[in-house]
Write a protein that binds this DNA or RNA. Structure first.
Lengths: 235, 235
DNA sequence: AATAGGATGTTCAACTATCGAACAAGCCTT
DNA sequence: AAGGCTTGTTCGATAGTTGAACATCCTATT
């Protein structure tokens, strides 16, 4: 077909992983026929993929044969930046309940910023839902600015070639936290502080809240303190 | 080699998934050489696997080339029983803070019971850590009993052939919750209530706490109330 | 400074795991 | 009972995978 002879990536594995992505995005269980057409492959291929995923508890089949994501994924996700998760979770819990806002940790993944863990406040009436796995470009949201502020512009160009370096990063570096308003969703604000650990890419602690007259400086100082507490546990 | 001609499961995909499991269990990043020897395959195979996993953001390589679990797994895990997670999280938060105990949801996966989401109380001084992905046989722990109590003994034999049906299930079905002491870890107790949703396998809401003179009946009633609140949101 | 050792990363022909058309079996509806 | 539709399995051909061999980088040692 295409003249590039070098595959450089595994077809079968890639299809299996795409299956997991498709299933994770699907609100309802899929039949194998539906999955195979989503994948653009023959049904018998989908059968073998599903059998294999099932062996690893990554998918589950219900009585009608429909396929959905399985609990094994929870175990795998637990291993992602395990020490960061461990150090951050108690801090996030305190932050969320103290401020009455959803608190979360976001990490740097290639072109964007991915939410890793979130904690909602005790009585989550007006709390903003921010679920793990959410992705945002660095051009949107306080966590992205906070992460950028943890690296110099030179390093940024080296690590993320082509990606713009936001002007807000300089100010964020000086005050120790970043803010954003109406960037991701209109009416929502967020405040974030970088978590720097030597040898790892920087991450960020952040909160989101509905637009209001919060004293941002205090909020920022509070979150930056949490970031330092997390850093200490990791060093 | 062996005379079974029917493979029935994909070698390449299985190796990729084993890689994810190995990385999730490893406390530190692995080199590709280490990973390949863990897998028992040639290094060049591990390279292709890692490249593919990297394309899907499921693994990350640091500057030294070491491989570790990537943020994409968080997005995949989010899709596991998404509606159950969504309905349960706020309830778990309230439970954890109200009782001062770690609260969690466990689901049925083949032979055992897997922790899906957990919430630790606000000030987690003495809180027991129960991380997502933890597996227990049905023979150990209150969540297993609670799940068993949601199905009849006939159905249990059909769905989990060979697995014993615990005698405590009958009592648990009557009172609406199950308890256990020193089953998983000496000194720890747990109380769990089943979450039944038509068309899906039963799950359980539970708390764990350090052995003490808690009034179990109250605790059980409280947790059973949470289970009902979750069920209502799912129906 | 130059050499040896060890590690990481890439190439390409041989081979074997994978692919997918064809087949078989179940399940509603007509 | 026949027809259509869906789910699941078989098996030869093929293309994706395999792994020895090669290239490259880094560090330690003489």
């Amino acid at each position: 077909m295409s003249p590039d002879t070098t595959t450089q990536h595994s077809q079968t594995l890639s299809r299996g992983l795409r299956s997991l992505e498709i299933l994770a995005d699907s609100p309802k269980p899929l039949s194998i026929a539906e999955l195979s057409s989503e994948l653009g492959v023959h049904r018998s291929i989908a059968y073998r993929i599903v059998r294999t995923l099932e062996d690893h508890s990554l998918v589950v089949r219900d009585e009608a044969g429909k396929v959905s994501s399985g609990p094994g994924l929870a175990a795998l996700a637990r291993g992602v930046s395990r020490d960061l998760q461990t150090a951050a979770l108690p801090e996030l819990t305190v932050l969320a309940n103290e401020l009455g806002m959803t608190a979360f940790v976001a990490v740097w993944d290639r072109h964007d910023c991915v939410t890793l863990v979130t904690v909602e406040p005790r009585h989550s009436r007006a709390a903003v839902a921010q679920r793990p796995g959410t992705r945002h470009a660095f051009s949107a949201g306080a966590p992205g600015i906070a992460i950028q502020s943890a690296v110099s512009e030179e390093e940024w160009q080296r690590l993320a070639p082509g990606q713009p370096y936001r002007s807000e990063s300089g100010a964020a570096r000086l005050q120790g936290f970043a803010t954003s308003h109406d960037e991701v969703i209109a009416g929502l604000s967020s405040v974030a502080a970088p978590v720097r650990v030597p040898g790892r890419l920087p991450a960020a602690v952040a909160v989101v809240y509905i637009r209001s007259a919060h004293p941002e400086a205090e909020l920022g100082a509070r979150i930056a303190a949490s970031a330092r507490a997390i850093e200490e546990q990791l060093s």
